[in-house]
């Protein structure tokens, strides 16, 4: 028996919004410790990893490890039927071929349930090595979304250059070039408005705008985003999911031939 109840159901709706453009289908691995999803996009350029801790749920039970392969378009359609303040419960029997989503209004006066067929997915699972990144940049997630959107007007790629002076995002294309520089904030009233740079050594890497823009669909999940970079390894774009977990996007850099 698997059952996970989340009073803040809107978080799950936001998680789906954050992955459904990148992934058509994926497996949710349910275990005693929580729920995890790892999947590559169709072109295998990026990898998405979602981690929802068992303690983050208001009720969590997982008697046996369970892999639930889901069509994310279908799952998203179902979650669209939940109101933002609904309590969401996911339920499945051991060895089941369906999962049930239960939505309860905060007053408990309306209860809906939707059953969805599960899929058998044969997906590669990649091992992500522990890495000490040369640069970790924390910035407001809305600012990052704005930068990616603005620079996408100029070219297909964004160059992210991090040094002790700050971080510079640049794009170049037919209409010209764009550069956006962010300095580390000296003092801020609110922590989520801060730009914080932890740097061991300067790093400059180039990434595809298309993917960065898809990652920023996670913006509603968290006021801050962190970008971790090291030379010649994938960028990690990480958003926290309330207090219950985090979503990480790994994007392979573009490399000079």
């Amino acid at each position: 028996m698997f059952e996970a109840r989340l009073v803040q159901g809107s978080l799950l709706k936001k998680v789906l919004d954050a992955i459904k453009e990148l992934l058509n289908e994926a497996s949710w691995d349910c275990a005693d410790s929580g729920i995890q999803l790892q999947a590559m996009d169709n072109s295998h350029v990026s990898l998405v990893s979602v981690n929802l801790r068992a303690e983050g749920f208001d009720k969590y039970r997982c008697d046996r490890n369970l892999i639930m392969g889901m069509d994310l378009t279908s799952m998203s359609k179902i979650l669209k039927c939940a109101a933002n303040d609904d309590i969401i419960t996911m339920k499945a029997q051991d060895n089941a071929d369906t999962v049930t989503f239960i939505f309860e209004s905060p007053s408990q006066e309306k209860v809906s349930d939707y059953e969805m067929k599960l899929m058998n997915l044969d997906q590669d699972h990649l091992g992500i090595p522990e890495t000490d990144y040369a640069c970790v940049i924390k910035l407001p997630s809305g600012e990052f979304a704005r930068i990616c959107r603005d620079l996408s007007n100029f070219g297909e790629s964004i160059v992210i250059a991090c040094s002790k002076e700050g971080v510079k995002f640049s794009a170049a294309g037919d209409i010209g070039t764009g550069n956006i520089k962010l300095a580390q904030t000296s003092s801020v009233d609110k922590e989520e408005e801060a730009v914080i740079i932890e740097m061991q050594e300067p790093v400059t890497l180039t990434f595809a705008c298309r993917y960065l823009n898809m990652f920023t669909k996670a913006t509603p999940l968290s006021p801050q985003v962190s970008l971790s970079m090291s030379p010649d390894v994938p960028l990690v774009v990480e958003y926290s999911i309330g207090d219950i977990g985090q979503i990480q996007y790994f994007l392979a850099p573009k490399i000079d031939d």
């Binding site: 350029v45 699972h125 091992g127 994938p234 790994f250 573009k254």
Partner: peptide, 14 residues
């Protein structure tokens, strides 16, 4: 010219 590698170039199947 820069080219896009796949993520599999960096992370091995576990």
């Amino acid at each position: 010219m820069s080219s896009q590698k796949t993520i599999k170039n960096f992370f091995k199947p576990s």
